[in-house]
Amino acid sequence: MTFDTLIIGGGHSGLQQGIALQKQGRSCLIVSTGESPRRFRDPEWSQEVERHRFEDLGGFWLEDRVLGGEFSGTNEGEILNRIFTESRGEKALDAEQFILATGSFYSGGLMADPEHVWEPLFGLDVFFEGGHKDWVRPDFFAPQPFMSFGVLTDAEGRVLRAGRPVLNLLAYGSVVSSRCAR
């Protein structure tokens, strides 16, 4: 079975994209670990309700953990050919278009050690500055630099990998640096 779009992450952003694309007649697969935090800015939001909406529109839902992907290079940029998951092993998933909606630190879409911030699935380019001393402010209620960290995208919302755009991988939601968010 093939899909037009494969969405990684079944939280607020992933479901929002999935529902919009299904309505446009594109066939979507969402790969989700099944856990999503509640959406803090919208307490009414329910992952379960939105997932049913998505499936009622013909979308497919797969509970699995994405481990990584296989890329190839072209002159214009990189192409994500397929992704590997925990339970499918060698049986990779492919699609024309991929969407990354894995969330930020809280959801594991971003990770940090004292010196680095990284995107764990594909090693995408991430915006962060300095070491952990520079990421925070002593006053909780002051703007906190780390809240702006996330993957970098080009003007079309395509993620970057070693400075080159990944032509068929868009990023949505809190995984994207607020500097690039549209």
Binding site: Y106, F140, Q144, F146
Partner: peptide
């Protein structure tokens, strides 16, 4: 805040969302 990386970073972000 002095230990904001790894798991503590998750808590830091959650706190920002919840209380800010």
């Amino acid at each position: 805040y002095p230990v904001a990386w790894g798991e503590a970073m998750r808590e830091a972000q959650l706190a920002q969302w919840m209380y800010k």
